[in-house]
């Protein structure tokens, strides 16, 4: 369902040095020579320290960023060339930012999504009923998005990403900032979605609880390369003894040499 073959992405960052007018260009490799496959129906956690290349990978998978080298296929399509066609086949949730329309009531946002994704009206109604029941959105549908709490908004975002019944759901830090109850609700929903509908799920997270409770497979990226790829138990077994998953992951993160800045460049705010 998702295939990466030797994918790299570099960014050119310009530094202004003191006392010099010319800026020095530095090439930063956010992702280097990355290859993996995710089969249909898998539930994969994508882990890595800040700046390891997680978001860059996700943005290449959904067609926002064009890779510098290598080949990507998602649902059989090249994401950067067939971005809009791919958008109908995948759902995307950003934990840090909403894809809903801020000033519109939740149900108007959903209706607008329906029209943009060209989802059949009858199919949409059934899907919306099911999603609002499972995500407990019933009482929120006429509330403008800006008035929703973070947990409510996240559930709304997940529903919006699934209205067109995508084959793949990609989530970038979906549980960031959520309280324990909201987190549990999101996790339970995602598990059900994967088990019952067979939707392929790929999520990035810093919350190892997400990994332990949800993901059958873990991929760990560091310095733009895949450092580990296997089940949660295999990950734990890399460190002998009674180590917790936190310890194991911390050891892998720290074990690597100190990272040069691998963040994609930040534009001045």
């Amino acid at each position: 369902m998702i295939e990466l073959d030797g994918v790299s992405r570099t960014f050119t960052v310009r530094h202004r040095e003191r006392g010099r007018l010319r800026r020095r260009a530095q090439v930063v490799e956010a992702v280097r020579d990355l290859s993996f496959r995710v089969e249909a129906g898998e539930f994969v956690g994508y882990l890595g320290p800040n700046g390891a290349g997680k978001s860059t990978t996700i943005k290449m998978l959904i067609g926002i960023l064009t890779p510098t080298a290598g080949r990507i296929r998602v649902a059989g399509l090249d994401p950067s060339r067939r971005r809009t066609a791919l958008a109908r086949r995948i759902g995307v949730v950003f934990g840090q930012r909403t894809t809903l329309w801020w000033d519109l009531p939740l149900k108007d946002s959903f209706e607008l999504s329906r029209l943009l994704y060209k989802v059949d009206r009858e199919q949409y109604r059934r899907r919306l009923d099911e999603l609002s029941e499972r995500l407990d959105l019933g009482g929120l549908l006429s509330t403008p998005v800006r008035q929703l709490s973070l947990g409510q908004r996240m559930r709304g975002d997940i529903a919006a990403a699934l209205l067109h019944d995508p084959d793949v759901l990609v989530l970038d830090e979906p549980t960031i900032g959520l309280d324990v109850v909201s987190k549990a609700a999101v996790r339970a929903f995602l598990r059900g979605l994967n088990a019952e509908r067979g939707t392929t799920v790929l999520l990035t997270t810093h919350d190892l609880g997400d990994i332990e409770r949800l993901c059958r497979r873990v991929m760990l990226i560091d310095h733009g390369r895949l450092g580990f790829d296997g089940t949660v138990d295999e990950l734990r077994a890399t460190v002998p003894g009674e180590a917790s998953i936190e310890d194991v992951v911390a050891r892998i993160y720290l074990g690597s040499a100190p990272a040069p800045s691998l963040e994609p460049p930040n534009y001045p705010q």
């Binding site: 067609g63 950003f94 840090q96 930012r97 994704y117």
Partner: peptide
């Protein structure tokens, strides 16, 4: 682009 709202436009199936 700076606020990241352009990313959101790029994930929708329209121009």
């Amino acid at each position: 682009i700076r606020s990241g709202d352009f990313d959101v436009m790029l994930i929708r199936p329209v121009s």
